[in-house]
Design a protein around this nucleic acid. Structure first.
Lengths: 245, 245
DNA sequence: GCAAAAGTGTTACCGGTACACCCATGC
DNA sequence: GCATGGGTGTACCGGTAACACTTTTGC
């Protein structure tokens, strides 16, 4: 049985990435504050976060936040950075928001950032009482976000892009069975760069851990594409360390 | 003026890497506890760490720990992971140590890990009242370390190795002017893999940010080597993003 | 003149890149 | 039969890997 006592100075923020076969998205929660007359004082978006319990593993805690939000088990989750500036909280709206909630968390908080990768199809976002929505990552620059969450988002994106250079990651964003075009679009979304189709396919064909299935796409009004599977087992067995430069 | 009140649940641990022209080392602090009769009860090694003040930036705090220890400014410092398991503290010797110090920190602590890269020559380790010593990284597996510091060390090494695959890092470990042999030994130490000399030099020759100087090594009893400089400016100007796979 | 490390050239292979056309399906 | 995305081959180039000998200096 876990204690319900929380650690006062630590929180977790999760950057949840999703992919809808076209573009990369991030899941955000609306934050809205009304005054007595019902006028909107604050309306912006936050990442999903929570405090941690005093006898709860940090990684478990992040995992639980996600499970709670999405209802999914076995979510891909990666810790990427810890944010500890003294000016993480904006003296305007963030302070106002905290006074409103009256949670007593207004003192210094260090936040541990995690990013997670979720296949959009699998998330029937169970919004509960909060307004939750996917945003294309292109739309983030113009979006108004709470606290230092925009900065956290960018750092997560950067970490994800770097991680991709080191390991084949991101298959969690696709359906279990995917086409090469979906895979290509995913990589293009993640990197922000276009990829040449033929060369892309030749490269993929050499990777033993991207396994062609006998199955084909169905119900599309064009030549149906072959489906593929990512095999983590094969990857782990055949992975090679790249050298420097 | 900074407050001297510390945040109760957060600490910083620094993994300080050094290079002595032959091998990679890490700086550790001896931890020793004697009983009333002077018998050694605990003797092992710790990373350098400290708690942070309630109005102190996380990154600044790490920076100050290093400045304090080494006397150096402008140290290369990178945050790599935050450790928050509930079993970070060993119930045997770590608990004993904490009782001895009687610091009241025995509750749950989350620790933010930083690694730093220092040229061994530049560190006249000012040991003050603590025993501080460089250890070759090969010797770590057999070393007895406090808390989860061995695990933190391995994670730092892993992070450093990954970082090197993405950017030319590690020049901070060398003298400002270095020979290609020193550079090669550094890369070999960091990766743990041997490198073929001629191919290595051809590769380096193509990198615009490794700048040959007109100067040569002096006072060696063999053909003196040419000296080189790492130019971060040139690197930043000419850096190219690698693609995936 | 000898020990010790510096420095260099060639070849073979592989992977990356650039590029344009035919194919299977639904409607 | 046409629109839509699926799927492929070839030529060139640059990078990587494997390999052994000559050069410069201090002593």
């Amino acid at each position: 049985m876990l204690s319900h006592k929380i650690l006062p100075n630590i929180s977790i923020d999760c950057v949840i990435f999703g992919f809808d076969s076209e573009k990369l998205n991030v899941l955000l929660v609306e934050r809205e504050l009304l005054d007595e007359k019902g006028n909107v004082i604050i309306k912006d978006y936050t990442l999903t976060g929570y405090h941690i319990l005093e006898d709860e593993d940090l990684n478990n805690s992040a995992y639980n936040i996600l499970k709670n939000l999405t209802g999914l088990d076995n979510i891909y989750l990666e810790q990427f950075y810890t944010f500890g500036s003294i000016d993480r909280i904006d003296e305007g709206k963030d302070r106002l928001w905290q006074q409103h909630l009256n949670l007593g968390f207004s003192e210094r908080i260090i936040s541990v950032g995690y990013y997670s990768l979720i296949n959009n199809d699998k998330v029937a976002v169970s919004s509960k009482d909060r307004k939750i929505q996917w945003f294309p990552i292109d739309s983030i620059p113009l979006l108004d976000m709470a606290f230092d969450h925009k900065q956290i988002f960018y750092k997560a994106l950067d970490a994800l892009q770097n991680k991709m250079k080191l390991e084949p990651i991101g298959f969690e964003l696709l359906p279990d069975k995917f086409t090469l075009t979906q895979l290509q679009k995913l990589f293009e979304s993640l990197s922000g760069l276009p990829i040449e189709k033929r060369n892309f396919r030749k490269k993929i064909a050499k990777l033993p851990y991207i396994v062609p299935l006998k199955e084909k796409q169905k119900g599309v009004s064009h030549k149906p594409a072959q489906l593929f599977l990512f095999s983590r087992e094969v990857y782990e067995k055949t992975r090679k360390e790249k050298s420097f430069f």
